[in-house]
Write a protein that binds this DNA or RNA. Sequence first.
DNA 1: CACCAGGCAAGTA
DNA 2: TACTTGCATGGT
Length: 220
Amino acid sequence: MLNIFEKIYNELYCYYGPQKWWPAKTKLEIIVGAVLTQNTSWRNAENAISNLKKNKLLSLRRLLSIDDTDLALLIRSSGYYNLKAKRLKNLIIFLKNEYELSLSRMFKSETDFLREQLLSLYGFGEETVDCILLYAGQRPVFVVDAYTRRIFSRHGLIGAKDSYALIQAKITANIKNKPALFNEYHALIVALGKSICRKKPLCHICPVSKIFKQAAYEKY
DNA sequence: CACCAGGCAAGTA
DNA sequence: TACTTGCATGGT
């Protein structure tokens, strides 16, 4: 018997199909994208990334040598560009100091240790770090974002004021511990989140509405 | 015109 | 601990 989180996943997968996340080729591009899309539409982050590519800056050595102000100018379209330039530079310096400027070395670290290391960096909060661990590192870490909170709390599956860690724990406890599943699930939640209204408590076009109706009669 | 998007950190009480 | 505010562009 499937639990509610598994049912929702199946419903979303049937409705939206595979999302093929993260939409990037290299690990560095995933990490840069994770920072650039903070509280920003993917479209704007994507434009900033293509701008970096045009200037051949999507490399650790290039990013290490560029000035903060020059980098900020190039990622302008992603918003908060001064902050994000500092955040990226900060990460590159961390990589240089701790991992000889090598992502493959960094990803040899144990997950919990690496998570704490990344969380200690300026501008790297839980969602950003978990995106990096999951999508660049293929670690079984569930990414909790604004859509996850909104959709699950709206339907009573989590508390509106639950902490990031608690939401993550509640979901993780109810699905199989496979990175590919975590990957697809978060991407599907984003697909759903983009399609629904932000303010209305429930939405009629929600493709998982029948599952949520059923949920009202079950215990969790 | 207002509101929002795949957050985060610093300040305040 | 629990709110509030600054950061900023581009689409609807």
